[in-house]
């Protein structure tokens, strides 16, 4: 079933999520088209990570609906299949598999989940390692790599599953300052190549470069949403102004 062309690729409708009594997402709605680059920012605890974790079903929302490509994301076979085939994710803590080499980290998904032949998976893995510019590290273990290299491996690992959309959950927050640039460069290239992405980050310079839509969240709600130009120069809400003044002060 092909959805009408005007329908957004990801549709988030009135999604709410509670951790016990704490409301992490308060009736959030959002549309993302294919090719769009969305950057989400906001203070910690504002629900930005929870939102993208709900899209990837690492968290289960209690109310509302998330559709990808017109299909409801839930625990049903079609719901998990649409996730498997479309969504890749990069985590703050990299979450590489420490007992596997870099190459094995990249090949695991294609070989086990996609049933790809080992030789093909190896070619695919090397292709993406070259794209993130560390093909020479393929035989090492994650612990032997720097943080920036590990995060680039994590990006390559997600790309090996050929996702239509990439979710980044604060991809540079666990990195030493001198390694942030190499990771952001890779993400920027990916954005230039037309990849759809949602990125939670505090790197405002990067956001200005890459985003075609900015989103500011606070207390589980979307407070402000707009193009980077208006977002950075003329934010409407006071909370967003305060946040930007604090984060851009230095």
């Amino acid at each position: 079933m092909n959805p009408p062309a005007t329908q957004a690729f990801i549709k988030v409708r009135d999604v709410s999520k509670y951790f016990d009594k704490f409301c992490a997402l308060d009736s959030v709605s959002l549309d993302i088209e294919l090719g769009q680059k969305l950057v989400i920012c906001g203070p910690s605890g504002s629900g930005k990570s929870t939102l993208i974790r709900c899209i990837n079903r690492l968290e289960r929302h209690e109310a509302g609906e998330i559709r990808i490509d017109g299909i409801v994301v839930d625990d049903s076979p079609t719901g998990s299949a649409v996730l498997r085939n479309n969504v890749g994710m990069v985590f703050q803590q990299f979450n590489l598999f420490p007992h596997l080499t870099i190459l094995e980290n990249l090949m695991l998904g294609p070989v086990r989940a996609r049933k790809m032949a080992e030789a093909d998976a190896r070619d695919l893995a090397m292709h993406y390692l070259e794209r993130v510019r560390i093909p020479e590290q393929f035989s090492k273990y994650p612990a032997q790599l720097s943080g920036g290299q590990q995060q680039r491996v994590a990006i390559a690992r997600a790309l090996c599953m050929a996702p239509k959309i990439m979710l980044f959950d604060e991809p540079t927050s666990a990195l030493d300052p001198e390694m942030i640039a190499e990771v952001l460069d890779v993400i920027e290239e990916l954005a230039d190549s037309g990849m759809t992405m949602i990125c939670v980050t505090h790197e405002m310079g990067f956001a200005r470069q890459v985003a075609d839509m900015m989103l500011f969240m606070d207390h589980g709600k979307i407070v402000e949403m707009g193009s980077p130009k208006t977002f950075f120069t003329a934010p409407e809400s006071d909370r967003c102004k305060l946040f930007l003044s604090q984060i851009l002060r230095h």
Binding site: F97, L108, G109, R112, A113, A158
Partner: peptide, 22 residues
């Protein structure tokens, strides 16, 4: 670490493969 399960989930491994390989 829980992140190992989340990473496995995000590369589409099912429960059996997650347990067995990760």
């Amino acid at each position: 670490d829980r992140g190992q399960y989340e990473a496995s989930h995000s590369i589409s491994l099912n429960y059996r493969d997650t347990m067995r390989y990760v």
